[in-house]
Design a protein around this nucleic acid. Sequence first.
DNA 1: CGATCTTATTTCATCTAATGAAATTGTCAA
DNA 2: TTGACAATTTCATTAGATGAAATAAGATCG
Lengths: 257, 257
Amino acid sequence: MVRRAEQSNYSLESIDRMALVLKALEQAPEQTLEQIARLSGLNESTALRYLLSLSKHEMVERNEASGRFRLGLSLFRLGSRSIEYRDIVTLSLPVMERLLAQFGESVNLATRQQGQVMLLRVLESATPTRKGAKAGETDAWHATSLGKALLAAMPGAEATSILKGGPLAAYTPTTLTRYDDLLRDLERAQTRGYAIDDEESVEGLRCVGAAIRDHAGVPRYALSVSGPKSRMPYQRTEEIGTAVMKGAAEVSRALGA
Amino acid sequence: MVRRAEQSNYSLESIDRMALVLKALEQAPEQTLEQIARLSGLNESTALRYLLSLSKHEMVERNEASGRFRLGLSLFRLGSRSIEYRDIVTLSLPVMERLLAQFGESVNLATRQQGQVMLLRVLESATPTRKGAKAGETDAWHATSLGKALLAAMPGAEATSILKGGPLAAYTPTTLTRYDDLLRDLERAQTRGYAIDDEESVEGLRCVGAAIRDHAGVPRYALSVSGPKSRMPYQRTEEIGTAVMKGAAEVSRALGA
DNA sequence: CGATCTTATTTCATCTAATGAAATTGTCAA
DNA sequence: TTGACAATTTCATTAGATGAAATAAGATCG
């Protein structure tokens, strides 16, 4: 009954082109036909046809006044459905709620998506100082506890190939932009069991994160707690880190790791 | 510069077929090729090609063990982007937060999408008893305060055409399933300024909602507060209803109504 | 108020690339 | 082992996608 497709040339070009259009629309909130054509590399006629066709299904909308195009609400509906029934979301929710209740800081769940780290769910701290990250956003691999927790948990070769994808951008003065520093940090995370982001992505923000392994033992998700450094002194970081690690292990077990 | 497409035959069939596939995938969390082909009306070969092509872009994923198909995480990412920059979401957030703080009950924002009422944003009450609705879900027009608030605010002919779409399904014993009853209820909502859902969609749940008008005065969104009837006696319903109505008017003004 | 410019939309001849019936292959269950 | 079932691949056919060029609608400027 189960047989997996092997042919790579088994792909519709129109779907690839549609994906190019959507990828272009992701780049900015609202764009003109010209911009979209340029970004997607499609002929203007073709880009317009894709945009109008997608509009019909509300996957693309346009600003009535300016005629510009933007991503449509059908995508929001489909996207909501796409995580609704995932085990990872339902299984980690109780753990996330417990961490939020215990420490009062924001709790985040992320996964790998198209080579990036994407937030799946965010439980926000009730305090006014919070990062304000939203599910669906993508984070840097090397500058967040979520990304580093995943990197530290995966085979070295895989981590290397991800990091080779681009330079280590500096988001703050403490971002680890040197390869050696990062590798050492990942080793520390490995022995410690959780990764630390000490203002490396956002100034004033400290996070601790640990990887979650799926049924096959693959580190596919990561759990983190993040808060302003004023409320996250190093001693507390250790305490929270241990709890995050335990929580991640608990979810891993629930997934059948 | 702005010229609007008029030709309806300006649409790519491959995009229509892709939409059929995605629509089929929305019906259930995970499906076999056969189910998807049947639901979408496509030939199995064709359906498979679309599914594999969409998989390449992570808009579709498959269960490794069973080979079944499901909606992919790219859609979640795209969907998040699609509401990120909308005025309605940013403008109503402060109002929603104020209502949550004031009454301690869940606050919901919805819009029309593909002929249905879809939740755009939900701020959940901190109490354990809460509906647990999630953004992206769709609600019944005739059995929720959000739907009824929209119906009551739109021209009668439009409301009628929406309601003619199907029978008035009964979700609870108090759901208004008779056309006359519903119309009378909508009239009451009109004079009152907000709609009430008194356990009409979920037993034990009471909601009050009001419509938000866009810059052109079209009732495009709705705001509601929902809570268990134990905490929503009629007197409080009135108080909250007035606040919701005022909040909705505030957002309408912010949108330029 | 008209001319000009910019950008979106439409047309249409060409031929790429999508289709689906049938054959094949892999898995599961007996 | 052997069917039975469902997924995958092949391939001849032609539907339907493409893009260059023409057109139309606003916007801007003099």
